[in-house]
């Protein structure tokens, strides 16, 4: 356990965090739009990038710049599965789905980095063709060069074992999630009447065929269980105008608050913990975040996370 190497690693990471974190905040304040130089080596601690007050595309660019560039995550020739939240038949201004501008921009970034293909899908809650169309995502993704794939075609799902799962032992999972080299999880931040909130971890409910099983069994535990099968390569949260009540469907644009924020992290637990705070929630009060943290699928203790903050205002 306590090898010398681990001790050194922890120490180095800690030192890096202490020295880097304030500096990046300073950089944000002074040179707002200048991308920060690529981070040196992969730190041992989770890294979370928080960007605010820019357009969705600009904030995504900033996040990637702070995470070593798109090329650090998407290598030439790789296949990318981009999973936005396309749950509801609602237009972009209702905030029920990931914004199409962000989806389109990320598709272009991936293809620009040399991705072989980018595929976009969701197992929608509302009727899927209407939802794909009215969310604006189908058009945005297609115009950017992505394949838009049917999430309601059971033949595209494969049954897999989930040995690490506590309650989710096997599931029909969309083949794009199982087979793509890169899984980009691109949720939208919303209040949720069942789980308290939805961001990165809950968005992955949309990659399994049988959503009802989740609800039947133990929603929070199973949301955490899925991460043992596949963790997203990177999670990018659209918190431009989060839905702060009546989620996850929402009733009107009055349910949204403009925050003009975007979070990005490879650690979905850390990202959800920060997202919970944006909604005024204590991360440990959101059961699936707490469970995932206890299962060591990530960390919800934000004091243990290296947070790189940027303001593009």
């Amino acid at each position: 356990m306590n090898t010398r190497r681990e001790f050194l690693k922890t120490g180095l990471a800690f030192g890096a965090a202490v020295s880097l974190a304030p500096w990046s905040r300073l950089a944000a304040a002074t040179t707002a739009t200048t991308p920060v130089a690529p981070a040196p080596a992969a730190p041992a601690r989770s890294v979370l990038v928080a960007v605010r007050d820019g357009s969705r595309s600009a904030m995504a660019d900033q996040a990637f710049a702070a995470l070593g560039g798109v090329g650090a995550w998407v290598k030439p020739g790789q296949t990318v599965c981009l999973k936005p939240n396309i749950g509801w038949d609602a237009p972009p201004e209702r905030g029920a789905n990931t914004h199409p501008e962000l989806v389109g921009h990320l598709v272009r970034l991936c293809l620009g980095a040399g991705a072989k293909s980018v595929s976009v899908f969701d197992n929608t809650c509302d009727q899927w063709q209407l939802t794909y169309e009215h969310s604006g995502i189908e058009k945005a993704a297609r115009d950017a060069g992505a394949h838009v794939v049917n999430g309601k075609d059971q033949s595209l799902y494969r049954e897999v074992e989930i040995p690490g799962g506590v309650k989710l032992k096997r599931a029909l999972v969309h083949s794009l999630v199982l087979d793509s080299d890169v899984l980009l999880n691109v949720p939208v931040l919303k209040h949720h009447s069942g789980t308290g909130m939805t961001a990165a971890m809950k968005n992955l409910m949309g990659v399994v065929w049988d959503r009802k099983f989740y609800h039947q069994t133990d929603l929070h535990q199973i949301i955490a269980d899925f991460l043992t099968l596949r963790k997203p390569t990177l999670n990018i949260l659209d918190a431009y105008h989060p839905m702060v009540r009546h989620g996850p469907r929402g009733k009107s644009a009055d349910d949204l608050v403009e925050m003009r924020t975007l979070l990005a992290s490879a650690d979905p637990v850390a990202l959800d913990a920060a997202a919970a705070k944006l909604l005024g929630l204590e991360p440990a009060k959101v059961a699936y975040i707490k469970i995932a943290d206890a299962m060591k699928l990530g960390t919800m203790d934000l004091s243990q996370v290296e947070i790189r903050r940027f303001s593009l205002a």
Binding site: V244, D254, M259, T261, A273, L278, G280, S311
Partner: peptide
């Protein structure tokens, strides 16, 4: 309903 209120209580990055 009224327009929803910002839950962040003034801190843009409450983390």
């Amino acid at each position: 309903e009224e327009k929803a209120r910002d839950p962040r209580r003034g801190n843009a990055f409450p983390f």
